[in-house]
Design a protein around this nucleic acid. Structure first.
Lengths: 221, 221
DNA sequence: TGCTTTCGTTAGAAGTTATAACTCACGGCG
DNA sequence: CGCCGTGAGTTATAACTTCTAACGAAAGCA
């Protein structure tokens, strides 16, 4: 992580302090969730008095947005790394679950309850697109024998719809069946992870990993 | 909704005021999410000064817990009503989606980002169990021809696991295949709804209903 | 050495939750 | 009907929060 040495001492100090603030912010979020994050408390923890941090972050919202950005980036990294190692859809699924369980609140910063007014900045949606791109790549490679389902098949109608509404694939050459697999990967795995990390499975007695793996086995279909 | 007349005028007034507070609370949550809920602001809206509301709610947390309880209750009502009308799993799925879209923030109060320390009171988890019971009923009725998958089938392993870890079914006589269907109903539909309501599909161009219905078609399998 | 930019401070406004203490009015009961 | 206790609403206060403004000091640059 040794960045270019072309930065002034001030810039280096600034970057270092911003990083420390973000680290403490993650700790606070892990302890009490995003609403419990207090800029003031972080400042005191770091030995400086309240408003000092406003030199480094325009406000609480900007800090949170920054954390969301970092969360997206780390997810993209995890997916990219797995894909680069030649992982198929199931492999990406395992990477996703590992990333999610590594820091549940980070997961919820990306996929949790949205703030009604909030719109993510463009560079964040770009990262989301990159992730979707990696999913589409894998979904295309995972293609099994016959790709176009018969008319009576449960997937026929969805694939017909996706074939005509594929702008989200942004020029990706994946066939409709791959679009369907990528979308299903996303929604099905998120469904399990979200409930698992939120604790809705605790006390039920079964192993979420079994459920997750069973969904992964269904994906290539 | 005419409750027993055996309550004193004071009790009736109290109940009425609590109800109005909750109504305003829902409005605030719809506008700015749960973190934006302010007990103080509600009091002022109702023409009374700050601390007056503490006669009616022990604190902000109790109010939110009450809202969560009401949210669970309304979900249970929606599912129960659909089940009573003879809905199959797909029917329950439609009822669930309608309920979710009717008030996204209410959905997220139930299935959204959890507060790290929070544990729901017992009566709320009981409502959750009742909902799961209705799901199991429908999942059992939806049973198709052959129920036990062959050894090579992607579902075989999961069903074997569920057959031995079924305390969450709480004595329900549903066979393992039904347990699997109920669980899948939950996780798959939640996956779509959560992403849809959070706005992750906006701008992608496809219709979430198509994706949802296609999952509903898969459920009986 | 001096100038300029940035940093951190304190002060303060406007919020929030929540408690304490006080007043007053409603309504149950004799 | 009238008394009087319980419950409701008030203000005051403490301890928080975010965030702006104004000031002083320190650090980098010429």
């Amino acid at each position: 992580m040794t960045t270019a040495g072309k930065e002034t001492p001030r810039e280096r100090y600034r970057a270092q302090l911003r990083a420390e603030v973000k680290e403490r912010a993650w700790e606070q979020i892990a302890a009490a969730g995003a609403p419990g994050l207090s800029l003031n408390a972080i400042a005191k923890q770091m030995g400086m008095s309240g408003p000092a941090l406003y030199r480094y972050f325009a406000g609480r919202d900007e800090l949170i947005t920054e954390l969301i950005r970092d969360a997206y980036r780390s997810l993209a990294d995890a997916i990219r790394t797995a894909a680069a190692a030649g992982a198929d859809l199931a492999g990406l699924g395992h990477a996703l679950r590992a990333w999610a369980r590594d820091d549940p609140q980070r997961y919820f910063l990306v996929y949790g309850t949205p703030v009604p007014g909030y719109h993510a900045p463009d560079d964040i949606t770009e990262i989301a697109s990159e992730i979707m791109g990696a999913l589409l790549d894998a979904a295309q490679s995972d293609g099994t024998a016959v790709e176009t389902p018969a008319d009576g098949h449960p997937d026929a109608r969805l694939e017909a719809h996706l074939a005509e509404h594929r702008q989200w694939a942004d020029g990706h050459p994946a066939p409709p069946a791959a679009l369907r697999r990528a979308l299903r990967f996303w929604t099905r795995l998120h469904g399990i992870l979200s409930l698992e990390l939120a604790g809705h499975f605790t006390g039920m007695g079964f192993d979420p990993a079994e459920l997750y793996d069973s969904e992964l086995r269904h994906l290539p279909q």
